[in-house]
Amino acid sequence: MKKIIAVLLILSLSACGWHLRGSAAGGDKLAMTAPLDIVVIATDDHSPVINSLRQLFPAYKINELTAPTSTSLTLVMEREIMDKRTAGVGSDALTSAYEIILSVDYRVSNAQGILTPRNTSARISRTYNYNVNNANGAAQEEELVLREMRRELASSILRRVKNISTKPVITSATPASTTAE
């Protein structure tokens, strides 16, 4: 009887559309589309966000080219800004939590023109606890949080690029800004 209930629960869970993020059974639909050719141009070609982007290319079926073609997209990574500020203070008047804000300005274009507004940016923020008595552990936690943030930011940019690749070219010169958290 317990096995039948377990099977029914599993079937009802899959029937409602629930799935693990990134799973092939309906996960990230943008990662399942046709391969996309892209040229990455960055001021710092070895920045952590660029490295995270390149690590995610196979998962999103993106081929990196060295020169643009008539069918490829160009992703220009303009600047990466990291801001760290105090998010909490303990009863001893020392910092107990920090907030890290990481943002990247970028634009996407193809042979016909620019596909994103001029000031397009992706932004993410995280808060982590800081222990004054364990500065080494806190530094390691900050590095881990930054690594995860860069990977999530890269994933967000790639999802946008895959989505943008099917949209029409922007012809107006009015700058607009989009930000996602």
Rank of each mutant, 00 (worst) to 15 (best):
Y60H: 08
I100A: 07
A31R: 02
Y98I: 01
V104K: 15
A135M: 03
L30H: 07
N110G: 01
R150T: 00
R118W: 13
A180L: 11
I62P: 00
G26H: 04
M1V: 10
S125P: 00
A15D: 07
S125V: 00
P175S: 02
A59W: 10
I4H: 13
I10V: 10
S165C: 05
V145F: 08
V169N: 02
E99F: 11
T174Q: 09
G17Q: 15
S91C: 04
V104Q: 15
D37S: 12
L115E: 06
N134I: 02
A180W: 08
G22F: 07
L158Q: 03
V161K: 09
Y98H: 06
D37P: 02
T86E: 14
R123V: 05
G22Y: 06
I100L: 11
K3Q: 10
I4A: 14
E148Y: 06
G22S: 08
R21A: 10
I5N: 02
R85T: 13
L13D: 03
D37V: 00
E148Q: 14
L102Y: 15
T66N: 12
K2V: 08
L65A: 12
T178W: 08
S165G: 03
E152M: 05
L144D: 11
G17I: 14
T74W: 13
M32Q: 06
G88S: 15
